Simulated scan of single mutants.
Amino acid sequence: MKVLTTLAERDYFLGFAALLNSMARHGTYVDKVIVGYREALPEWLPALEPSTHGKTFVTPGGLEVELVELDGSLHMVHEKPKWFRHVSEVLAPEAEEYFFFDSDIVINTRMDFFGEWVQEGVAICGDVNFIFDRTHPVRKKWASIARAGGKTITNEIDGYYNSGFLGWTKETKSFITDWNDAFALLAPYSGDMNEFRVFDRTATVLSTNQDSLNLAAMMTDQPISLIGPEAMGFIYGMRLMHHPIGPKPWTRSFTKEFLNGKPPREADLIFWENINGPELSPLPAGKVNKMLRLCKTLRFGGRYYKSLA
């Protein structure tokens, strides 16, 4: 069995709809989707039935989606290592392949590529702030903390990696334990983990979940397979997915931001192309078509004004 998992709350379920539709448009590949959620579920979801661990529905394409209430009060991003362990050990221990995508990601490539990738090692993508040398003073602090905690640094890594995607297998899932161990090591340096971030990059920890992912990659004895920031669409190249940084596409006031010099991003356009689709359609078609036209018009205008600059 192959499992895709994500985390969602409040309006991030709109992102989940786009994620699910984009996956279906690229071959689905997985057998089941498991969503960790908090707070109320959106009313536009299909009719839900009780499941072993929560609630479930089946998409028009025949894909089972199970919604499991998240046990934890940290900021959602910091719940990732614990959630992945729960998925691997409790919710789907029989799975052979696991894929996590943040619920604001849209997939751009064939889904079976992710299956090929994960056979080469734990699959991880570069962050937008990718340059992070193995001799970086903060990375050296992480290594010292790990060694003081009885861990061994097994991998010298250049680059900083994003926690918005992760792929692992039944054979490599001890990496999830490594991530939880790294998280525990860095937590005392993190500040208030009800916040996304507290400090800046000069501190030992900027974002606990993401820094600990990077430390786990340094500590693990499992094979890892790394692709740079192009994988998430942060730079040109192998754009496997689009991961919007900053304001999410469903929150942006495109016309106002355009007048302030910020035209819609490619990630915004791709989101609106996928928000309604073969598996979920949470918004009225008229609204979606209007937003698509607006994004395309303002992106064209943005190129024009840029050419005058």
Rank of each mutant, 00 (worst) to 15 (best):
108 N>T: 09
88 S>C: 12
137 P>N: 09
262 K>Y: 06
219 M>S: 01
220 T>F: 00
193 M>P: 10
306 K>I: 00
125 C>S: 10
291 M>A: 04
11 D>P: 04
21 N>P: 09
15 G>W: 11
222 Q>E: 15
268 D>H: 00
23 M>K: 01
20 L>H: 09
63 L>C: 08
246 G>W: 02
78 H>F: 11
212 S>E: 08
27 G>S: 08
14 L>A: 02
200 D>I: 07
19 L>C: 04
156 E>M: 12
197 R>D: 11
186 L>V: 07
100 F>P: 01
157 I>G: 03
263 P>M: 13
286 G>W: 11
192 D>N: 15
8 A>W: 03
226 L>V: 07
296 K>A: 12
150 G>N: 09
222 Q>S: 04
186 L>G: 02
186 L>W: 06
61 G>F: 01
102 D>K: 01
31 D>N: 06
111 M>E: 09
189 Y>K: 09
24 A>D: 14
307 S>A: 08
225 S>C: 05
213 L>Q: 01
54 G>F: 02
250 W>R: 10
19 L>K: 08
144 S>N: 06
140 K>L: 15
94 E>G: 09
50 P>M: 05
13 F>C: 10
199 F>M: 12
68 V>I: 14
224 I>D: 01
209 N>C: 15
120 E>A: 09
151 K>P: 00
10 R>L: 09
309 A>R: 14
149 G>W: 07
208 T>C: 14
4 L>C: 06
242 H>M: 11
138 V>W: 01
190 S>A: 15
273 E>C: 07
124 I>G: 04
50 P>H: 03
44 W>S: 07
71 D>S: 08
106 V>D: 01
53 H>R: 09
239 R>H: 10
212 S>W: 05
187 A>H: 11
22 S>M: 03
6 T>P: 02
303 R>E: 15
136 H>I: 08
66 E>D: 09
163 S>K: 00
233 G>S: 09
163 S>D: 13
307 S>R: 13
95 A>H: 06
125 C>T: 09
48 L>S: 01
254 F>H: 15
156 E>N: 06
250 W>F: 13
245 I>S: 10
242 H>V: 10
86 H>E: 14
287 K>V: 03
52 T>P: 03
120 E>N: 06
132 F>K: 12
198 V>D: 02
136 H>D: 15
306 K>N: 15
24 A>G: 01
256 K>D: 13
229 P>V: 04
164 G>L: 11
287 K>R: 11
264 P>A: 04
298 L>C: 06
293 R>G: 13
246 G>D: 07
12 Y>A: 10
206 L>Y: 15
25 R>P: 02
192 D>A: 08
33 V>A: 13
160 Y>R: 12
239 R>V: 12
219 M>A: 02
283 L>W: 05
276 N>H: 08
176 I>P: 02
90 V>G: 04
200 D>A: 05
93 P>F: 12
262 K>I: 02
299 R>Y: 05
105 I>C: 07
108 N>D: 05
164 G>S: 13
223 P>M: 13
245 I>H: 09
141 K>D: 14
174 S>A: 14
67 L>S: 05
299 R>N: 08
38 R>A: 12
1 M>H: 07
164 G>R: 03
255 T>Q: 11
158 D>Y: 03
241 M>S: 14
248 K>M: 10
91 L>I: 04
278 P>L: 01
136 H>W: 06
202 T>Y: 08
224 I>V: 15
